[in-house]
Design a protein around this nucleic acid. Sequence first.
DNA 1: ACGCTGGGGTTACCGTAAGAGACCAGGTAT
DNA 2: ATACCTGGTCTCTTACGGTAACCCCAGCGT
Lengths: 127, 127
Amino acid sequence: MVTQSEGPVLFGSPYQADCPARRILDRIGDRWTVLVVGVLADGEARFSQLSRRIEGVSKKMLTQTLRGLERDGLVRRTVYPEVPVRVVYALTDAGRTLCEPLRALQEWAIAHLGDVAASQEVYDRAN
Amino acid sequence: MVTQSEGPVLFGSPYQADCPARRILDRIGDRWTVLVVGVLADGEARFSQLSRRIEGVSKKMLTQTLRGLERDGLVRRTVYPEVPVRVVYALTDAGRTLCEPLRALQEWAIAHLGDVAASQEVYDRAN
DNA sequence: ACGCTGGGGTTACCGTAAGAGACCAGGTAT
DNA sequence: ATACCTGGTCTCTTACGGTAACCCCAGCGT
């Protein structure tokens, strides 16, 4: 193990600052993106439904996150010009491919919740 | 009308604001954490090596990220009190379990780079 | 004895980005 | 007339990320 010279960049190369992969990681690593995609993985949803299901997200951040995902081609935004306007968000095919990795992350988080919390407590007591 | 009020929460429940899973997602979803774990997946590394391999990270953020990971029990910090002090960081067993999900994310990012960039261009032209 | 270098940080400051919350458009039910 | 609905936008404040300067400890050149 331990080949620790400035050696081979392991997977891809998001380690160069200018690498586009870096930007994508920034986007999908974003706090709300994970949750929005998680909800939409379950099926399309309206703005207000997303708002309710993702506790604590502000309208501003939700809008911003959705715009970003739309721009990236991961989410499709459909406006139904009805009585009170209805806007539906859904994952695109590309967006659906993102579900698996994100779900893996979420499952990891849930599985390791206890360990992490325990470790934090120990760490904090030791200051 | 779709009564999808507080319906079934799909996987786990990071959708409640107070859920600890949310905090973990925040941590691992952080920009630098992904990259640090990526580097350490390759084997242990010293502070300065991390600094060099992760282009653009400031000392402050690197320290902060490493402290967080250590607190979470994902990274082990070893100090060798030598002439110029040497500090080595390595993933713990728990940390190693995080590699897989993160690598999946990185691979997704690399695989979809082109599509995303193309979509952004289209989106931006349409304003 | 004095300053310089190098590793691994910490601290002070500052600008941007996130969050809270008021306000808006446009139509309809009261 | 006006209150209400959805899906936002605008404004203000606060928190967080980034920059750069400084710290400690030892050795080394001068």
